[in-house]
Design a protein around this nucleic acid. Structure first.
Lengths: 341, 341
DNA sequence: CTGAAAGCGCTTACAG
DNA sequence: CTGAAAGCGCTTACAG
């Protein structure tokens, strides 16, 4: 007969603890703990008794106690450059929900594209002993790298890949994407193709490399317009004017981000400049609204939602201590040639 | 002479603990703890000694241990409906950075406008014993309300106000905003003013009330176009067509969100319909891009950034145990009459 | 203004 | 397959 022993003593806090559950179920706290965590090797009957006790008592586990005892929390730190770029919001949204479904909570950090801010966030968040880390790209301070490495926390890199780096990542080749769009423009007969970019973060510069490579035989540095200000509609309009003023013979402009390109399209409309008749316009990322523009914007669809999803899945695998067979996942991109070029 | 006693014993984990700091500083762990938390009433000399020990040893506090011992973490749960609406991203961005600067980490949850999802998130996140709660609006399940109440965790409501509810909030009157824009349209001579809304969340419906009130003497239900689909550019274009088809005599359309209005503006351009000549268009929220439209969009600027900031500040006050003198902060709104009406 | 004792609620080895 | 013991690293009362 298994008449459960009465709980030894009510805690001062009045909280229902694992001890209460164990007592009610007539097992030891360790067994209750194992049953709750789904650790295999617990008799099914005991598991059932524990679960019954849990719902009878309304037991809620304490993550802090769990983290303290196990030296690991159920939280994942997600570090992205900006919340004001829809690209990263899509990434975050996908990662967040994938992680949540697997029982992990997301702690988000915004680096504002500053390596020092990222380092500070890492220092702060690593205190929590997160179960995993999701970081954007590969460019960071040495100290950040050491922090990640030294923490022993599994880490997956977003947006880019570095084969043979020994690092986990899910992304696509920014350079190849820049190359492909430039080539598509060439193939459509455009000869004076400008590249207009803002923010100038590492991935932007990789796309610029792709642009140059595709134009190797006829690359003209005077057709590169780089502005370190953040990307926006207004800046796109402004850059459109700048390009036409400084390089009147331009016949196509490849904008590094869709908000820039959409701003340019609107400015062309405002100024009565024909697109693509007078000048073709291409964007990057396929942000919302591009399809609605006049004319609909040609752009590169980037798989940020899938990146958030796949990177989270990879991280979940790593956090469980399992091996990942493909450490660098290239999700590719897609050329969306609509009517603006 | 204060030759510090050697740490009693190295922990198995090799971690530098508060005990090590205390031993090095030649004080008790409690004093070290108090000094670190900036609790007043510790001799300045001791504080200095503790701080010296901290940097000498490279001590990093353990949030889990702190949370377990104090029954409260340094994390704040932020619940918003959607990440795909820039409005809430702005809110989140402001809240997140304000909280971080005050030493609090944000745990974000996306409810997808589903009261049940919110309730589930609350159950999950409340386990962490957050220091504070930021939730959107006042519409939620009874269980959610009970959960918040029962947790004893300070909670500030975002976006709306409910005077005399005894609840803390920072927002503005959605109804007054809907009313004001409708009135502005009337004053400009528009007689057949349609109201087009998507999502149909509580705040949308409050704006609809404002619209109706402003038109009390001449309100025509046939001019209300409500679609429960999520707001988007494409839906705006679609609704624009629908309104003109079903109510050909309409002379103004008040869209409930800027993405709808921007989509409508683009559709008008596509169809060659004069705005505001043939029909005026107004939006809501002043999302990015509205100013760049053709013609620039008239809209209502809503202070979501300020709401995120002020709500966080209020919450910080509450989390410190201090009193808040203004529990319902109305931040107002601003009519931005540009050229679309 | 400072400290000794006890405890927060769980899990990790280590046995058996 | 199950458990007794110890410990994770900090803070809360309670004294003085």
């Amino acid at each position: 007969m298994s008449t459960p022993a009465a709980p030894k003593r009510r805690r001062a806090t009045g909280r229902v603890t694992l001890q209460d559950v164990a007592a009610t179920a007539g097992v030891s706290p360790i067994t209750a703990s194992r049953a709750l965590r789904g650790e295999r090797g617990v008799a099914t009957e005991l598991v059932a008794r524990v679960q019954a006790a849990v719902s009878q008592l309304g037991y809620v586990p304490d993550p802090a106690a769990r983290a303290l005892a196990s030296a690991r929390s159920n939280q994942v730190v997600v570090l992205i450059p900006l919340l004001s770029n829809a690209l990263f919001v899509d990434l975050l949204d996908a990662a967040q929900s994938t992680l949540l479904a697997a029982g992990y909570q997301s702690l988000i950090g915004v680096t504002h594209y500053q390596a020092e801010e990222e380092e500070a966030l890492l220092r702060t968040y690593l205190m929590n002993r997160p179960a995993g880390l999701l970081v954007t790209g590969f460019d960071r301070t040495e100290a950040s790298r050491a922090l990640i490495q030294g923490s022993g926390v599994p880490c997956v890199h977003l947006m880019e890949n570095r084969k043979d780096s020994g690092l986990y990542s899910v992304g696509f080749s920014q350079q190849a994407a820049g190359h492909a769009m430039t080539l598509a423009l060439r193939e459509r007969g455009y000869r004076r193709i400008a590249f207009a970019a803002a923010q100038l973060d590492p991935r932007t510069l990789q796309r610029a490399h792709g642009y140059r490579a595709a134009l190797a035989d006829r690359h003209d540095p005077a057709l590169e317009f780089l502005d370190s200000a953040p990307s926006s509609f207004a800046l796109g309009a402004q850059m459109f004017d700048r390009v036409l003023a400084q390089a009147p013979d331009v016949d196509a402009i490849f904008f590094n981000n869709d908000d820039l390109a959409q701003g340019a399209l609107l400015q062309a409309l405002r100024r009565g400049i024909q697109v693509p008749g007078r000048v073709a316009i291409a964007g990057f990322n396929d942000l919302i609204g591009g399809e609605q523009m006049l004319p609909p914007l040609s752009t590169v669809r980037t798989p940020r939602g899938e990146i958030g999803l796949r990177a989270s899945e990879m991280l979940i695998t790593l956090m469980r201590g399992d091996a990942v067979d493909e450490p660098c996942v290239d999700l590719g991109f897609e050329l969306l040639m609509r009517e603006s070029c």
